[in-house]
Design a protein around this nucleic acid. Structure first.
Lengths: 138, 138
DNA sequence: CTCCCTGCAAAACCTTTGCAATGGA
DNA sequence: TCCATTGCAAAGGTTTTGCAGGGAG
């Protein structure tokens, strides 16, 4: 069994849920296609799985902390959570659309500190910086 | 006229739109109640204004850059934009949906520095921290 | 064999749109 | 007055739910 599917199985069993074909399909689709809107996820799984089951399983995965919802402009996307993929943020160029990653531990700590100072228990966060990349700033 | 209403009027007139009772109601509701879900905005204005007009005017305000959407899981909240109120970010409670503001100049500088270090000219950014507020962390 | 899980269909929401009437400048 | 704007009603989308049958353990 694939290491990631093993992970899914482990998470489900730990809470008394079953490893079903439906759940494998949803999980593998997210694993393969990265951040997806619910709409694209439904389209991608159409014919293999009922809409209701997609919604129910996405909700379950979220409750288990295996899937997170990201803001993506005004839309929302689903992706496997930080526990399963590398956590990072993005610099998005308004000029050419290029996307660069941000990996900054100090920034992560900074945000965690601010949340704690307000009595908040942070679970996830997202940062998006929009601007011009080196080539487009001229 | 209230200084904020004057601002609304100015923004509308600059693009050839009218200052109507409906628009005043929507604007004042957002000004008074801070970040609101569309649902709460509709409820708050029920009886004074038709749903369709709320949607149409929120959309207009967004186009004019006077209102911005905040992600809140799969939902979203609306608030007056940075041009009208101070620039800030949000702590969103997964438990009860409460939204608290973050005002941290050091964080702003930190993000600007990271962008610059990658040759990036930042124009805008958004940060969202999701977790549990003091009351919900129990 | 026993429930949990799924598909189906309908219900419940949420958002947009067409049109005639109204009201702002 | 003139045309943007509104309310109404209906359509179009999205998400949730009840229930009976099917699959995992």
């Amino acid at each position: 069994m694939d290491v990631n599917l093993a992970n899914l199985n482990e998470q489900l069993k730990a809470k008394g849920f079953s490893l079903t074909q439906s759940r494998i399909l949803v999980f593998e689709h997210l694993l393969k296609h990265g951040p997806l809107t619910m709409r694209d996820l439904l389209i991608g799984l159409a014919g293999k799985l009922d809409r209701a089951s997609v919604y129910r399983n996405v909700k379950l995965f979220e409750d288990l902390g295996m899937v997170q919802r990201l803001s993506n402009g005004f839309k929302y996307s689903l992706e496997l959570s930080d526990r399963l993929i590398n956590h990072h943020h993005h610099l998005v160029c308004i000029g050419c659309g290029a996307i660069a990653d941000i990996h900054e531990n100090k920034l992560e700590e900074h945000i965690a500190d601010i949340a704690k100072n307000q009595g908040f228990l942070p679970k996830a966060h997202q940062i998006e910086v929009r601007g011009y990349c080196r080539r487009c700033r001229a």
